[in-house]
């Protein structure tokens, strides 16, 4: 580009609004949070002096109140991740595959239908599921009681394992459409010619999925997995409003625990330390997922295939072709590795 030194510096003006905002609302709170976490800091009266890493020690040493709060809510949050991530990834992929096989005119319509609930706020979703699954006067209980399937009302939001069930159903219903949209767009870009060629040669549906579709949506699958884990880590509204953290403290999430420490116990210092620990745990888990997928990819690069070879593989893996292909023994071995 044709620019003098003066215009170079002039260009910097364009970045200034962003930098100011970033400095005030992101960098300052981040550094201030680290600073607060090293002090005996109360929400009401402010700073009571530097105490080094004592807040962290208090959280990580067994038998302190804050240790119990942090560990219990961390455990609950990890359980929620284990319960919610598999359906959020698998159901969204299933819906995307279903939509991908529909006639073009219907694709946009159904994509919108399944994505619709994503536009609703977590508080409205919670209000909705609170009354669908209400213990007294809730819609599901009314139906179950009237049809005689149950004789007394189920306390959906107040008894386990129902409480987790309702939270997970509400979460899946709320956000599965977003993952689905990402998968649908990735499936749109898979080479149609490969499918057609595989069809002509009679490859089975599973083999087409395994050897043509899956390698092409690999990157988006990793992305969906990682962002879904992060989203589930941030569980707050659903368990605050649907179960109020109960029964007991069994659905109380990490963010609820931090919130209670800051506002309930007046401990901004310990709460900030908890938030930083939570951030570090999230970054570690994200890093681990990246590392695991990257390592797999490196193992696979040795056998990365051109489209033609992938097609051949999809066909060879089918039992009907096995005897006709001299190369199948090698192919089968490789299948097991991947």
């Amino acid at each position: 580009m044709y620019m003098t030194k003066r215009t170079k510096w002039f260009g910097f003006v364009f970045v200034i609004p962003f930098l100011i905002s970033f400095l005030i609302f992101w960098l300052t709170p981040l550094l201030y949070g680290i600073w607060i976490s090293l002090h005996d800091f109360r929400l009401s009266v402010g700073n009571n002096g530097f105490i080094g890493l004592q807040n962290y020690v208090a959280i990580l040493t067994p038998t302190t109140l804050y240790h119990d709060v942090f560990m219990n809510t961390l455990k609950n949050t990890l359980l929620f991740i284990a319960l919610s991530v598999p359906p959020l990834v698998l159901i969204s992929l299933g819906l995307a595959l279903l939509i991908d096989h529909l006639p073009n005119r219907l694709k946009t319509f159904f994509r919108t239908v399944f994505f619709l609930s994503y536009a609703i706020s977590v508080t409205a979703v919670s209000a909705l599921y609170l009354w669908l699954f209400g213990a007294n006067g809730g819609f599901i209980n009314n139906i179950l009681l009237k049809t005689g399937l149950i004789s007394s009302a189920i306390n959906w939001t107040g008894d386990q394992p129902y409480a987790w069930f309702v939270i997970v159903v509400a979460t899946v219903w709320w956000t599965v459409g977003f993952n689905m949209l990402l998968f649908v767009n990735a499936l749109d870009e898979v080479d149609v010619n490969l499918y057609e060629a595989a069809d002509l040669d009679g490859a089975s549906a599973w083999n087409k999925f395994r050897y043509i579709t899956l390698p092409d949506i690999r990157n988006i699958s990793i992305f969906v997995m990682i962002t879904t884990v992060i989203a589930s880590f941030n569980l707050y509204g659903q368990s605050l409003l649907i179960t109020r953290g109960g029964p007991g403290q069994s659905t109380s999430s990490l963010i609820m625990g931090i919130h209670a420490t800051v506002f309930g116990n007046n401990q901004l210092g310990i709460g900030s330390a908890m938030a930083l620990l939570m951030g570090i745990i999230m970054m570690l888990i994200t890093g681990l997922q990246y590392w695991a997928s990257y390592r797999n990819k490196r193992e696979e690069t040795g056998q990365r295939r051109e489209p033609k070879q992938r097609l051949k593989r999809a066909l060879n893996a089918g039992p009907t072709n096995v005897s006709q292909q001299p190369a199948t023994t090698v192919e089968k071995k490789e299948r097991k590795i991947t």
Binding site: F22, F25, T28, P29, L30, Y32, L43, A275, M278
Partner: peptide, 21 residues
């Protein structure tokens, strides 16, 4: 670099200090 690093930091770490500010 700032833009990309900031993307990887979870929002929860800035929330409570920002509120206090």
């Amino acid at each position: 670099a700032i833009v990309i690093i900031a993307l990887t930091v979870p929002g929860i770490v800035t929330l409570f200090p920002a509120f206090y500010l």
